[in-house]
Simulated scan of single mutants.
Amino acid sequence: MTIAITPLAAIDALEIQRQASQRLQLGIERTMSLDEAAELARGPGEAWTIRHRDRVVACIGLRETFPGRQAVAWAILAEGLGAAHLAVTRFARARIAASPLRRIEAIVRAETPAECTWARLVGLQAAHVLRCFGALSETHVLFERLRED
């Protein structure tokens, strides 16, 4: 399998054909602008593009909310991720495991089992249920990874 992993270029986040379930963010349908994508690529934190056969299949990263201490894990997964799913998941899990940050978190929709499963697969643990959360007042789950020092 031909997988290429490179630092995120802003255009990658616009080029990816997002999975239908990822078109909503906390209940709001939105499209990322080039400026937002450039900011995501710049950081603080890390951002990666994963290509399979020259097609962008994932953009993932750790957006530092408190630089050097804490981050939000994020992922944009492409329709038809298919055969690249395992490689993408393993890479995301390795980046989270290797991160020196004390806290990494992600909020996912409870009613979308694939989101909860993927959060677990990348090394995060369910911590709290957030009821009536986001623009549509849906139930979400806060996942986290804490590094005890």
Rank of each mutant, 00 (worst) to 15 (best):
T49V: 03
A106D: 07
A84I: 07
W48R: 04
A47F: 01
C116I: 03
R93L: 01
A73K: 01
A10K: 00
L121H: 12
I60S: 03
R23Y: 03
R95I: 14
V141C: 04
A106R: 07
A110I: 04
R131W: 01
A92L: 10
R53P: 00
D149Q: 08
V72R: 09
G43Y: 11
S137M: 11
L26D: 08
L77K: 10
A47S: 15
L81E: 09
A75E: 11
A4G: 00
C132H: 14
R30Y: 13
V129E: 14
I107H: 05
A71Y: 11
G134F: 07
Q125F: 04
G123T: 12
R18N: 02
I5M: 02
L24N: 06
R145H: 13
V56W: 02
R120K: 14
E144K: 02
E138I: 05
L81S: 02
G43R: 06
A37C: 12
L130R: 05
R53M: 05
I50E: 00
E115N: 12
H140A: 09
L142R: 12
R53E: 15
A78F: 05
Q25F: 14
L40F: 04
M32Q: 14
A126E: 15
E64F: 08
R42I: 04
A37S: 13
R93C: 06
A92T: 11
V57M: 03
T139A: 12
S99C: 04
R102C: 10
A58W: 06
L101V: 10
C59P: 01
E64S: 03
R30L: 14
H140Y: 14
V88Q: 01
Q19T: 02
L14F: 09
P100A: 12
I3Q: 00
I50S: 01
A4H: 09
Q17S: 13
R30C: 10
R53V: 11
T117E: 15
L142W: 10
E138T: 14
R23A: 01
L14M: 07
Q70G: 00
G134D: 05
F133N: 05
D54Y: 07
P113K: 13
